[in-house]
Design a protein around this nucleic acid. Structure first.
Lengths: 343, 343
DNA sequence: TACATTTGGACAACCGATTGCATTGATTTA
DNA sequence: TAAATCAATGCAATCGGTTGTCCAAATGTA
């Protein structure tokens, strides 16, 4: 118990066997220049002494850390934790550890994290940009330290990096097409902040699809803001005070959609009969609420896997192409509007 | 771009200024033995050259890594990702990074992870034991490498470690008391595997509370197994085939409770009128489903914070006491049985 | 037997810091 | 003025490995 058992090193093994440290090192690596006899002796002794190589020393010498840094706004969100699950799975398979950091959507915290990571702690970084971030030099600085970067979901044109993202434009476009196809004409949109690509893309998809259907949205059809349940409640109240209800509301976030849905129903509006609602992200709760919420699945775990693979390719000196993952529309009760056949 | 800009070290700065590496090192640390003039020169040059200390080298020298390892079954579960959120928050505040690993509930993977972490990668470990784990030597081995360990939620008596857990016995006990108080007599229980402390504690709480109410449960009142939604469906089917329905079902997991609830309702059983249902964990979906699910909040983020604090205390050579977090019963529609006043 | 090869392993430099100790020039003290 | 003190810095060892180079013994060849 109180024996001051120091961590044992190759030199301790070397001393026991009367050989040099380099011999031990080579023996443990099965270097061909070591005789079978010595190699086995060393390996057995190492086992007996419960030797474990010091990862810091190895990495310092080799010049890499075999660790991937992951920076996300919050890990406690299904989208991100699923993505991380995918990252971890792929990374582990090829011997990388994963260092997780949350930016809490804050620019400054994100900057500090990246600074810290670039002190040799990680070989590469996978990130999803905080939405408060409006200056991207901290990301672009990674290149100076030769740290490859892959962005997923929350990307930016101003950052030079590999990207993995969903086809948000397409997802939004198809949602609107679908809503139109089942008879909706006044299709409102709750959009996220427009400097964030994913939300802007969805907004554009919504807009273009409407126009393709020959519909010109009113100025009050769209609102931008944060993506919380409360924001949805607020949007619903605004809508209830307007002169005419929409047929449908397409929200860029399931949480906002949830707020909208609950607030409308609290005020006696029937969903989907009076107003259909379509969310985005396919959160686990979507199929549990009543009415269940139609949404767009982004395959977040798959995104994480793709991001990890891309980063590893980059670390191996390859030049992988950006990945775009096609989303899938999930139709549920919140859009089973009257007059259409059940899907 | 293609300039082979090597990472710069203190020696590069030293060379520029014509001083020694040790002077640079000391100057950067504001060592008092360095003249003000030199110190400022060094610090300015370091900034200009965009110097960043190599964390690996620093840690190797100092003998620690300033990193905490976290091992959980899955990060993509609200309970665990919330806990990790708490861990990360506390750890970051005091300068620690967090290395996340998932065991996927597998004994073998857990063993490998701990082995890897104990190669000097982390200074301490926070873990929640995989339920397939039935031998705990990999945890107890950490002590040999002087790596302090804190377990949370999924703990074991066979592991010597600090623990943070909810008062599961108490939580379960109070659930039963409550159900009894609103008139339930046949209170079934879906229990998890009994080698896992949290599930065993809840089982015991259920049993003791029943007996305290003068009720002797039948052999078919309880079932143990995995904690998936499907397991809940299976349990519900079993119940439906029994001769008499229970008044109430207390599930050790919200996911199981969900399966039970949906399957009962699909078969025309009214919840809570015929059967009340109480879950455990207070998952986010609980308040969104219909009827909303009564559950026990475990304050998972707070658990994570407590675990991180405990580990950091241990790392500082202190001897913190185990933490028990009292759970809180959240009453929702799934237990608003007739005859009782609305809470 | 004498010389050319292998073989197996030791030596030492190195990765990028930190830090105890030695050194030097300047200032104080006796 | 010599000795003692002090401030500022350099030297070199160290953390725990990896790896290029070199050497001695063993083996092969003629």
């Amino acid at each position: 118990m109180n024996e001051k058992k120091k961590k044992i090193s190759i030199y301790d093994i070397a001393a026991v066997l009367g050989v040099s440290g380099s011999t031990v090192s080579r023996a443990l690596q099965n270097h061909p220049a070591i005789s079978e006899k010595v190699r086995e002796q060393v390996q057995r002794t190492a086992r007996e002494m419960n030797y474990k190589p010091n990862a810091l020393a190895v990495n310092l010498k080799r010049g890499y850390s075999k660790t991937i840094g992951v920076v996300v706004p919050y890990i406690n969100r299904n989208f991100f934790s699923s993505a991380i699950e995918g990252i971890e799975e792929i990374a582990n398979k090829v011997g990388y550890d994963v260092l997780i950091c949350q930016s809490n959507e804050q620019h400054e915290k994100e900057r500090k994290i990246l600074h810290s990571l670039s002190q040799g702690k990680v070989d590469g970084v996978i990130a999803s940009i905080a939405y408060e971030t409006n200056d991207y030099t901290h990301f672009n600085n990674l290149a100076e330290d030769r740290i490859p970067l892959v962005l997923f979901d929350r990307v930016s044109d101003e950052v030079k990096a590999g990207t993995v993202r969903g086809n948000d434009y397409q997802g939004a476009y198809r949602v609107v097409e679908y809503l139109f196809s089942v008879g909706c004409k006044r299709i409102f949109h709750y959009a996220g902040f427009q400097h964030v690509t994913v939300w802007r893309d969805r907004y554009r998809g919504w807009l273009d699809a409407l126009q393709a259907c020959g519909i010109t949205p009113g100025a009050d059809w769209v609102r931008t803001g944060g993506i919380t349940q409360d924001a949805g409640v607020a949007f619903a109240r605004e809508i209830l005070q307007g002169k005419a209800l929409p047929d449908a509301i397409f929200s860029t976030s399931d949480w906002v959609a949830l707020g909208i849905l609950l607030e409308l129903m609290r005020n006696g509006v029937k969903v989907p009969e009076e107003v259909a609602i379509f969310g985005y992200a396919n959160e686990p709760f979507d199929e549990l609420i009543t009415p269940s919420l139609s949404s767009v699945d982004q395959f977040s775990k798959r995104m994480g896997c793709a991001a990890a693979r891309m980063l590893i390719d980059k670390l191996n000196g390859e030049n992988p192409e950006d990945v775009i993952i096609e989303p899938e529309l999930i139709f549920r009760d919140s859009t089973r509007v009257s007059g259409m056949l059940s899907v």
